[in-house]
Design a protein around this nucleic acid. Sequence first.
DNA 1: TTTACTGCAAAAGGTTTGCATGGGT
DNA 2: ACCCATGCAAACCTTTTGCAGTAAA
Lengths: 156, 156
Amino acid sequence: MEDEIDLFRFFIREKGLRNTPEREEIIREIFATHDHFDVDELYLRLRQKGSKLSKASIYRNIPLIMTCGLIREVWHEDGHMHYEHIYGHHHHCHLRCVKCGKIIEFVDDTLNALEKNLEKKYHFKVLDHNLDVTGYCKGCIGARERKGPTSILGGY
Amino acid sequence: MEDEIDLFRFFIREKGLRNTPEREEIIREIFATHDHFDVDELYLRLRQKGSKLSKASIYRNIPLIMTCGLIREVWHEDGHMHYEHIYGHHHHCHLRCVKCGKIIEFVDDTLNALEKNLEKKYHFKVLDHNLDVTGYCKGCIGARERKGPTSILGGY
DNA sequence: TTTACTGCAAAAGGTTTGCATGGGT
DNA sequence: ACCCATGCAAACCTTTTGCAGTAAA
């Protein structure tokens, strides 16, 4: 945890910005769990702990926390963005169950080789990659078959 | 083009829904170009051709057109979703330049092998995968170096 | 004839922004 | 003292929805 804070302080100082208790509070809460998160969830967690931090401050600071390499966007779902920790984690990708929302993280080294190939082939400087695999998890495969194929249509 | 329409008609009939001129108009416009698209862009293209189609109808029909397998969501950028054709295309992934927005499509078969491994390892039924690789394209690598590393911060 | 589909406009929900206040440096 | 960062509320933008009219089957 202190590693993340130290990294952030260094980043802030180097950019000539200001360190504030609010900013550290946000980072501490983000890294208080190992899970993915979204803005609303983070805001509620802070509120429950008695924090007076505003959502606006979260929205204003997230780009900063991304830029310094602590977190990144992972996917857009249910109308809002979801984030995950980068710092202290191997770069990993996600299996997402579209039925129950379960997330399985996996590491795959072939993607690094792929990145290298792409850089060579297209003269591209790769910053990041994000592989999002969707489907049905073990527990939901049966449920899907019972409900029948039309269930995917929702309202239609 | 007629292939897409035929597939959609079959899908609609099978679901017991109704085929309308508006629905075919949307599909024809989507497949009028080979490019990725978003809702607003599609709406403006239709407008310019004199169509009276409403945005609401586009929003209401996109899930349907996704479900029948003609298009899919590719990424969320600039506050809205972007889509691409599936029908008649090999499953491909994207290199995206974060500076100029250039898109390079590439096909990579190792991802199919990866999918199979994931299915086996996690007892997962994979529906789709989406690999989004971001970075700087050939033309923007120089520009990035000239502007310096702080440019990525934008407003900050 | 039934009822799904459309257009319109309003609502909803996430994110951004203007402004006055407060606080880091 | 300067001016960046915050909280609040309003604004903004994309997407969804209620409703009344229209048209496909």
